[in-house]
Amino acid sequence: MAQMKFMCDAERCIECNGCVTACKNANDVEWGIQRRRVVTLNDGEASEMSISVACMHCDDAPCMAVCPTDCFYKTDDGIVLHDKDLCIGCGYCLYACPFGAPQFPKQNAFGERGKMDKCTFCAGGPAESKEEEYQKYGSNRIAEGKLPLCAEMCSTKALLAGDAQDVADIFRQRVVHRGHPDGAWSNNPQASTDNLAYDAARKG
């Protein structure tokens, strides 16, 4: 089974927000919610860097571990989805998530949160019918054999989506061509264990 992952190549991302727009469009996301965001560090400085983030579909997902309703589940493809019928909008997933992925529509009285919404890897969610699924979670491109629209539409192919192995292979190739000594993963605690960075280091 595939293990679906996103990866954003920060050296390619040009902060065009195409992915953000593609996602909004593909999933008809509610007003005020943006499942994907682009973060830019040191804007305008020589060290400027942009990166596109959404739910990263964590292996051992923190949101799953803290949800009081236990409404998250992992698909066979390693995609983290949640059931909006169970969600009570407590916000715990947001406190735990490393990437600020969960969001809440603000439309209820006394600031009470609505049902949580986050990136589904364009894989929809639990529902009785296709229409209901689209209305609640957005499109299910995975069921149609397609990858998430954000990555498909990324103009610089900075944002990659797909099986972790394929994504890693593409990135490894890029790193090799760039000639970075360590694939720009320097001082990343993962670098020694992550074979992706390991290969790059060997080449360097």
Partner: peptide
């Protein structure tokens, strides 16, 4: 920092 940008609404 001052040059941090987030494209998300009111983030």
């Amino acid at each position: 920092g001052p040059n941090f940008r987030d494209s998300r609404h009111e983030s």
